[in-house]
Nucleic acid binder design. Structure first.
Lengths: 345, 345
DNA sequence: ACCTTTTCTGATACCGGTAACATATTACTA
DNA sequence: TAGTAATATGTTACCGGTATCAGAAAAGGT
């Protein structure tokens, strides 16, 4: 009758001839264990393939050792940089020996909200990292009402009471536009993101402000929306190309759209940056691999993840002040932008 | 000194004047509770906002009530149908009152494997649903070695010993190609997926077999690779368009590439389906919204999720036989395909 | 050599639920 | 109306760890 071989901390203690408390100390790297005892226990653990029961650990500790990341898969395809943020999160989670679970939410159904918050109420997670674009998310609303610890990633607008990490969308866009102007461009197109999203909105605002500050007029027919999607960026560029005053430079509110736009430009027989300079936002992986490589505004995506996760893990209610962190963006100049080449029209 | 208000099952029992066992029975819908007692307890639960401690529940039950979905975000962008599979999974998980967590893996690092398997060894999850494209995944290898329950979704090739659910890639592609031939086409292009992926391979094989069976020769210059990506589908189509014998029909191994191909066709001034018929694979959401709407091979994606999750949840080791389920695909005829219009060349 | 401090180990209670069994109540049957 | 079955509730032990405190062994100081 070989029973199912359920190896627990007791099994190890028994075989090692110690109490289970000593085994627990070894597991948690407690200093007060004789090195001989320690190694004997470690050997047994390895030999018997013992793994502590996550659930039991969680139950006996006061605070959970797990955090959850909440994302909306539907929107993932415009959150291309998501992967890099996740890497940052995982780095920190690992450093703290925490666990990370990912939860998916779709729309704005009450029912789904509970499925998420139950992980907190059920004392399994310490809190949430929230990456949903919509500000009006009822999930976020419920979390605030219930005093659940959470950190918004990349959605600062309208949440002054909550924790968030975000990037300088406004300033980044401002810098990009200013840079184009400094290269001599004055007919500058803009491919905007989805108007309902805060980050998209801020980027457009930064763009407009830079032009205004420098006395460059914004031609409204050179501002088109591409909803952060590559194919719509392509379409948007086609629109810009048929305008009577063709832009000499185009600023796309994210790299994906910039990529689409570059394709449109190339197909129309024009050259980048000779005929049209192009600049993006995000600095996603492929930006540097495009031909020509894409000038863009780099978001510190990895750090977005580390900061958010670090705060949540360290967070102590009633002690910590809300986290309002806005990370700087950086203009990365590559080949797709250049000084205006010749006078047009 | 208002203490942190930790509401447990004991709190409820005390206030209700019963034992905590009765409360537990109410929580689990056990029939033997007087309805008056039941409603009194339910009211207290609602009033005090009690939520059972997930961790404690897991610890006292023998089997965990949670399953994990393992995905590879890097590859997500070619797994566009992922969202629909997920919905199927969530449906079942919900029906069984289970929980679902999502775990991300990136490459093939040992370290990551342990992070995943620990959820099982730590007795928190009953098993895994695995959606990683690579057959050579060391995660899958380890899971097999350790006898961890798991179900592969959409990756049947080479895993005869493991559980999997997949779709009839071969047959689906065969049907699609046969259909094109039946419309009178004989110069048929094929835009292939990444050669290292089993599903891509099967689709190509089905395509080739159909042509062979019907005595239609495969021109190798009409077979190009698009790696399941939209923009590469576009590029691939451009390739096909400049071939000396332009195809009158093109079969793309997934809808995303078909979408890109359609764009290329339209831009070249040709009409779909008048000049070129096009057909995809997957039936992703947008397929029916394209103009013209896309004829495609529909995968039962939702059901892929329900079957996999259902099996894993019901699974009993040593009793159940391995799950080898291959779901049928269906040819959905829409506007993008038609009988050959005129004789070319 | 004795006393203090530091290092090491164990006993016990507990985290918050559920399982299994026992007991008390009601309902039904003859 | 007693006797049995069905319904309703409580008791106890336990899931597998950790915290806390107490005690033992080793190390250090004078």
């Amino acid at each position: 009758m070989n029973k199912p071989e359920n190896i627990t901390i007791n099994t190890i203690a028994e075989k090692a001839g110690t109490s289970k408390m000593t085994v627990s100390r070894v597991l948690n790297n407690h200093p007060y264990v004789k090195s001989k005892t320690r190694s004997k226990i470690l050997n047994l653990i390895k030999k018997l393939k013992f793994h502590p029961n996550i659930t039991a650990v969680n139950l006996s500790r006061k605070t959970p050792q797990t955090i959850a990341l909440v994302i909306q898969y539907e929107h993932l395809f415009t959150n291309y940089y998501f992967t890099e943020v996740l890497q940052g999160i995982e780095k920190i989670v690992d450093d703290y020996s925490y666990n990370l679970i990912i939860l998916n939410v779709t729309s704005r159904q009450e029912e789904e909200v509970e499925r998420v918050t139950n992980w907190y109420f059920g004392k399994f997670v310490k809190g949430f990292l929230v990456m949903v674009p919509a500000q009006d998310s009822i999930l976020v609303k419920k979390m605030r009402e219930a005093d659940i610890p959470f950190v918004l990633i990349g959605a600062s607008g309208g949440f002054r009471g909550s924790n968030f990490v975000d990037v300088e969308n406004y300033t980044g866009a401002y810098k990009a536009a200013k840079y184009l102007i400094s290269l001599g461009h004055s007919q500058i197109g803009f491919i905007a993101g989805p108007p309902e999203r805060g980050d998209a909105h801020e980027r457009e605002a930064g763009f407009r402000k830079a032009l205004a500050d420098k006395g460059v007029p914004v031609s409204e027919n050179l501002v088109v929306c591409g909803h952060f999607k590559e194919d719509l960026g392509y379409q948007a560029m086609l629109q810009l190309l048929i305008q009577p005053t063709r832009p000499t430079a185009v600023f796309a509110a994210n790299d994906l759209m910039a990529k689409g736009a570059m394709m449109a430009i190339k197909e129309s027989g024009l050259q980048i940056p000779k005929d049209i300079s192009i600049i993006g936002f995000d600095d996603i992986d492929v930006a540097s691999q495009l031909i020509p490589s894409l000038t863009t505004v780099k978001q510190p995506m990895f750090r977005l993840g580390t900061e958010a996760a670090g705060f949540l893990i360290e967070y102590t209610p009633e002690v910590d002040k809300p986290l309002h962190l806005i990370l700087p963006t950086e203009l990365i100049i590559r080949e797709s932008s250049s000084r205006i080449w010749h006078f047009q029209k």
